[in-house]
Design a protein around this nucleic acid. Structure first.
Length: 799
DNA sequence: CACGCTCTGCCTGCG
DNA sequence: GCAGAGCGTG
């Protein structure tokens, strides 16, 4: 290669490096590496999404510009010199970005890009951030195939439903629908719930689908065991039931797509030639079916990139297999591995703690997070008496810090292992002035009234939908008993037609004579509404469904204390209106599909100034300046069942602890109680082994007995513990008293007093302000300036 | 057929 | 400690 060419290429790469200078070296390497398989091991807070987004933008704008050795044949000295001087020229990033376009090498059109995520939220974020990169072309992002595994697969299945063995207008069963279907299957097969609980049957089948095992394969693999043989039968009957209803469950969406691609070469090839670049986010959460899917779709160009963090794999119970990420570079033997270990989120103390904990795991790729942010403060370890004291302690610290350190409520998060822990927290916060937001609990779409309304709409959309029909046939009560419904289904099987079809002609069957009128009326109602669907706008139509079915009246009859159910129905209709605005040609089918695939409207509103509380699982991917981790106790975290289940489960639990710790940016509080009541049983558990795994020098434990300087309302007179409810009740009564007579641990200072502080030296009290049961002092220190300190926490000595 | 009572089991949860 | 499921009775 000529010297000129080398200078050209060097200048080109220097210009790119300048353009991406806000990224670190590893991040840049990941952006430039677009051909061949790539595994990015992205530690917590290492700028993973930034890399993902900038890499896609790079493909669209510049193709393989950086690594290409292409030199234009007419390259001359003058141009190379001008490029070299541009490297340090005072130009804006925008100008630089435009300049780089001359190096574009086979840029990729958006429709050839496939970006897969797990959640709608993640997909939305990627799309939004990409849209910001291309403000001049607002339609560009829409062209990218970016979405969740499920939405991508649905897109494929909708197009090739016949080849996939589905009938037109097939629908998606969600968790509740599948549960109902499974209950019915077990009943049909006369399998007692005690022998095989619904949950357990569902789990077996779901895990089988994750591994692409169909009922025959299941029987073949496990059939020599009686119980498994039984489950294979259940599996088969369950699939038959779904197929009768022309329905898929969430697992089917993935594995039916895989099966479609594996059995139809021409379809596979068309997608393989389309998708030049495939990216998969949160790869540590993928299961075998999803692995297979990505391998198939990227099989044409073999430009597959996966990002993930084996240390943050916390969904094994949901079928994820960590082997996908651990063995990526073995399965794709020409794969490159890039580690992103620089953390932009947390202090070094927090990272050291996280590194220390996770290093106890065996099965991992190995990463060590670091930061240049500095050590920060130590990790606070607190040991309250019980869960109510724990909640109070968290509350107190938040109040103090908001009062004295200029922090806002939204800077704080409380992350716990199980939702059952939320009770004590909610009790404490609900009666304080601290605003909080609690995630989890009953999702909007899980509300009974919403489920019922959706069932009506699904039935109208697809008359074959047996489980939705059975759900609402007696909502409101139509006086159809078990016997009638059983007869109805039996006839449907005999005539091999849908339950709905039997209902339409109920008067022709002797077994139905008594309820024929009601059945035909109901079928008539559904048919009438189906006709109405084409006449009225969607929102009006939904209103009509509620009115003509009598459902709204039924809810109204429940009385004023159930008024929020009516509100929920109204909110649903406003969702319908939202949807109508978002599309040119709204259809019921599309609306139902979107609602089925959108888990919940993100109730986590990060603009509200409120303390946020949620499980560690739901906090994955989020970050907060101040994090509290209550319940670091053996038996709770790690949970009793994981301890019994074995070392692999403990490792997963340890990864969860790692996720929890790495959510914190500035300060981390780990709490473990001396005793805790959970599921109605009180137990004294030792501190979590994960806490013991953090080196002592990173921890700050308050002086012994300091916590006793606060009096907790959670203590009852005889020294025993009260329940959360008792405590709440007691506090409501004693609030006034408690505030009038604060438990002042030390003598109360007054303005003008001279005091001595351990760290700040001597100073003079400027003002005293009462804060709940405590006092806030403003003190002018002689050498350290004016500080605001809380009486209970600041160790002040009057001099 | 509907309502009320007892009994059980219960971690985490995307789409 | 609580919710949902199942069972018995009016």
């Amino acid at each position: 290669m000529s010297e000129l060419s080398e200078r050209y290429l060097r200048a080109k790469r220097a210009l790119f490096d300048r353009y991406y200078r806000s990224l670190n070296e590893q991040q840049r390497a990941a952006v430039y590496h677009i051909n061949r398989p790539l595994l990015i091991l992205a530690g917590a807070g290492s700028g993973k999404t930034t890399v993902l987004v900038r890499r896609i933008a790079y493909m669209i704008r510049y193709g393989n510009a950086y690594h290409s050795d292409y030199v234009p044949f007419d390259m001359d000295e003058a141009h190379v010199t001008s490029l070299e001087s541009a490297v340090s020229a005072p130009i804006t990033d925008e100008e630089l970005g435009a300049l780089l376009c001359e190096f574009s090498n086979n840029p990729c059109p958006p429709w050839r890009l496939l970006a897969i995520t797990f959640t709608n939220k993640a997909a939305g974020e990627i799309k939004a951030r990409l849209a910001a990169v291309f403000p001049e072309d607002p339609d560009l992002v829409g062209g990218i195939w970016a979405g969740t595994f499920h939405s991508i697969c649905m897109r494929i299945l909708r197009r090739y439903y016949a080849e996939a063995g589905l009938r037109e207008g097939f629908t998606i069963y969600d968790t509740d629908d599948t549960k109902k279907a499974m209950q019915a299957v077990l009943k049909d097969l006369r399998i007692d719930d005690k022998v095989l609980p619904v949950k357990s049957a569902q789990s077996y089948i779901s895990r089988a689908k994750d591994k692409l095992i169909d009922p025959d394969g299941f029987l073949l693999e496990f059939g020599n065991d009686f119980r498994m043989k039984q489950i294979a039968k259940v599996y088969e009957a369950y699939q038959q039931r779904l197929s009768d209803s022309n329905a898929l469950d969430f697992d089917d969406i993935i594995c039916r797509t895989v099966r479609l691609l594996e059995t139809h070469q021409e379809i596979l090839q068309s997608y393989q030639s389309q998708f030049r670049y495939v990216s998969v986010d949160e790869y540590q959460d993928t299961n075998i079916a999803q692995f297979r899917l990505t391998a198939l779709l990227s099989g044409g160009w073999r430009n597959l990139m996966v990002v993930g963090d084996d240390d943050q794999s916390i969904y094994k119970f949901r079928g994820a297999t960590i082997a996908n990420i651990l063995e990526f570079d073995r399965v794709f033997d020409d794969a490159t591995v890039i580690r992103l270990e620089q953390n932009y989120r947390s202090t070094q103390s927090i990272l050291d703690a996280a590194n220390a904990v996770i290093s106890h795991n065996e099965g991992r790729k190995g990463k060590t997070l670091w930061t240049n942010r500095g050590n920060g403060s130590k990790i606070h370890v607190l040991n309250p008496e019980h869960q109510n004291a724990e909640a109070r302690e968290i509350l107190d610290i938040i109040q103090k810090k908001v009062a004295t350190e200029g922090l806002r409520y939204r800077d704080f998060a409380v992350l716990y292992r199980t939702n059952a822990q939320s009770n004590a927290l909610e009790m404490a916060f609900a009666r304080s002035a601290v605003p909080y937001r609690m995630l989890g609990g009953v999702r909007f779409s899980d509300r009974k009234e919403i489920r019922d309304l959706v069932a009506y709409l699904q039935l109208i959309n697809n008359h074959d939908d047996r489980d939705r029909l059975l759900r609402i046939i007696n909502e409101p009560r139509r006086g159809l008993g078990e016997k009638t419904l059983a007869a109805l289904q039996e006839i449907a099987v005999m005539e091999s037609c849908s339950v709905f079809a039997v209902m339409e002609h109920a008067d022709q069957y002797l077994a139905l004579s008594r309820s024929a009128k009601t059945l035909m009326e109901f079928a008539g109602l559904i048919n009438e509404l189906t006709l109405l669907l084409d006449e009225a706008p969607l929102d009006k139509f939904v209103n009509q469904v509620l009115d003509l079915s009598g459902y709204r009246q039924m809810i109204k009859n429940l009385g004023p204390e159930e008024a929020d159910r009516l509100d929920n129905l109204d909110e649903f209709i406003s969702n319908v209106v939202e949807y109508m605005k978002s599309t040119d040609s709204p259809t019921l089918t599309e609306f139902l599909e979107e609602t089925a695939l959108v888990a919940d409207v993100d109730r986590y509103d990060d603009t509200a100034d409120a303390v946020v509380m949620m499980t560690i699982h739901s906090a994955k991917g989020l970050e907060f300046p101040q994090v509290f981790l209550p319940g670091f106790e053996e038996g709770l975290f790690p949970g009793m069942q994981t301890v019994i289940a074995g070392p692999e489960e403990i490792e997963e639990e340890r990864r969860l602890a790692y996720v929890a710790i790495t959510r914190a940016k500035d300060e981390l509080y780990i709490l473990h109680t001396a005793s805790r009541t959970i599921y109605g049983r009180t137990a004294a558990n030792p501190a979590s082994r994960f806490l013991d795994e953090i080196p002592e020098h990173l921890l700050s434990r308050p002086a012994i007995k300091q916590r006793m300087t606060n009096t907790y309302a959670g203590y009852s007179k005889d020294g025993g513990y009260r329940t959360a409810r008792e405590t709440a009740a007691a506090d409501r009564i004693t609030v006034g008293k408690a505030q009038a007579k604060p438990a002042a641990p030390r003598e109360i200072l007054a303005a003008g007093d001279r005091v001595k502080h351990m760290l700040f030296g001597e100073g003079e009290v400027l003002s005293v302000q009462k804060m709940g049961t405590d006092y806030l002092y403003e003190i002018a220190f002689d050498t350290k300036g004016t500080k605001k300190l809380m009486a209970t926490y600041a160790k002040l000595q009057k001099i």
